[in-house]
């Protein structure tokens, strides 16, 4: 078991509550991650500043604010600018991700629906070392 301090902090910003709940449950069950979930972009930005995660999973199509906009704000804020962001998108296909086209606006993206295994792999590849 990894201790709390060594756990990677993951922030997931997505308006689908059940999804974020499950992700949190699954990732935390893996034992290596501390997960915080936010359902709104604005709250997500505030959480990023406060929580200072190692990686942010960011949904693109959200109800209050577009993921792109959130990413923009996060990128341009020195407090959060260097936190790696991974988009979660429903409108891409997994083939596109595999074919190496998985970058949107400088940030990699993953195609929903994602399995826990895929999430973990992504985190290990992209998370900023604390």
């Amino acid at each position: 078991m990894v201790d709390e301090a060594a756990k990677k902090k993951i922030l997931i910003i997505d308006d689908e509550e059940d999804f974020t709940k499950l992700v949190k449950m699954n990732l935390e069950a893996a034992g290596e991650y501390e997960v915080r979930a936010e359902r709104e972009g604005i709250k997500g930005i505030a959480a990023a500043k406060e929580f200072k995660p190692n990686l942010i999973f960011l949904d693109i199509l959200m109800s209050d604010m577009e993921g792109g906009e959130v990413a923009y704000q996060l990128d341009n804020d020195p407090e959060t600018g260097n936190i790696p962001i991974v988009f979660l998108t429903a409108v891409a296909k997994k083939e596109e991700v595999r074919e190496g086209k998985g970058v949107i606006g400088g940030h990699p993206f993953m195609a929903k629906p994602v399995t826990t295994a895929e999430l973990i792999q992504c985190i290990e590849e992209n998370a900023r070392r604390a």
Binding site: D14, E16, F19, N26, A90, P113, T115
Partner: peptide, 18 residues
């Protein structure tokens, strides 16, 4: 559709993983 469906799908997968 993609959005609306894939979210629940994501949940399901996550649920199944769980």
């Amino acid at each position: 559709v993609a959005h609306e469906v894939r979210n629940p799908l994501g949940i399901i997968i996550q649920g199944v993983n769980y």
